[in-house]
């Protein structure tokens, strides 16, 4: 619903503005903290951890309760996904994959909340001019995840192949030692493409989703129901799928980094 006195363009830009420190409008800001993203994502993460921690504390090897059942299904699902892709110790990678999956899933779920609701609450309850509720529609959040994964790719490369092995593969793969420059260029691109694609895929999907919801919200109220409903149903798929893709690709990238070719 476009508020009275705003043009559609103003409405859209208003919705795409972060609650941030400072008034930095640069594409890559060096000083603005996206407080809405940080706040929402942290709260969602704490919800996830609280829920799972409760299940973990109450965990019994006897008959599991409903919460434990749900948590066990999640853990089993993630553990199997990691087991399929990665053949080293899962003590770190499986919890990492679980955190990524559930956390991004919850981020994405924020997209299903009516687009006007969080900014309205932020404005009327907390007096905030701008508020964006979907962390994964903020590049800062998705890049935070993908850069962490990137760091892990490097760490696992060294762990799995050793510094020499990693350097050798980086310099001689896939064209052989004679075409070293080509190898270096190709491998650098390949290496950097991983975090970029990870972050941008998630961001792109959810940003587009949010934007469509904003555009639907611009329609007259009677015309919003059908597209709004349709897009939300479709989005349930996107929400789950993007979380799953992010997790799976993380596992695949780390496993590729860790294992010899």
């Amino acid at each position: 619903m476009a508020e009275a006195g705003h043009s559609p363009a103003e409405y859209v830009t208003h919705h795409l503005h972060h609650w941030a420190t400072g008034h930095d409008n640069a594409f890559i800001s060096a000083e603005a903290w996206h407080l809405d993203t940080l706040f929402i994502s942290t709260v969602l993460g704490l919800i996830f951890l609280t829920l799972f921690r409760i299940a973990a504390v109450r965990a019994t090897s006897g008959v599991p309760g409903k919460l434990q059942n749900f948590v066990e299904i999640m853990i089993d699902f993630v553990d199997n996904a990691v087991k399929d892709g990665f053949h080293g110790s899962r003590a770190f990678l499986a919890p990492l994959a679980l955190t990524i999956f559930v956390w991004t899933f919850l981020w994405n779920c924020m997209d299903l909340i009516p687009v006007d609701l969080p900014p309205m609450i932020a404005k009327h309850v907390f007096g905030l001019e701008y508020f964006r509720a979907v962390p994964s529609a903020d590049m800062s959040a998705t890049f935070a995840l993908s850069l962490s994964v990137f760091a892990l790719i490097i760490i696992y490369s060294f762990k799995g192949k050793g510094a020499g092995g990693f350097a050798k593969e980086f310099l001689t793969h896939p064209f052989g030692a004679k075409l070293m420059p080509a190898n270096v260029v190709l491998n650098t691109v390949e290496l950097l493409a991983k975090p970029m694609s990870l972050a941008l895929r998630l961001f792109g999907n959810l940003y587009a989703g949010e934007l469509i919801f904003i555009l639907i919200a611009l329609l007259p109220w009677w015309a919003q129901v059908i597209p709004g409903f349709g897009w939300a149903v479709f989005h349930i798929l996107v929400v789950t799928l993007q979380a799953f893709i992010f997790m799976t690709l993380t596992i695949v990238y780390i496993s590729m980094a860790y294992e010899h070719h």
Binding site: A26, S41, A94, P95, T99, S140
Partner: peptide, 27 residues
């Protein structure tokens, strides 16, 4: 549309803490 470096760093720290917590106390 904006990516913010402090936000990214802060988010990474939060992420790290969450992963650590999951690894230690949940999984």
């Amino acid at each position: 549309m904006q990516a913010s470096i402090p936000s990214i760093v802060g988010q990474m720290i939060v992420f790290g803490i969450f992963v650590w917590f999951t690894m230690k106390f949940v999984w």
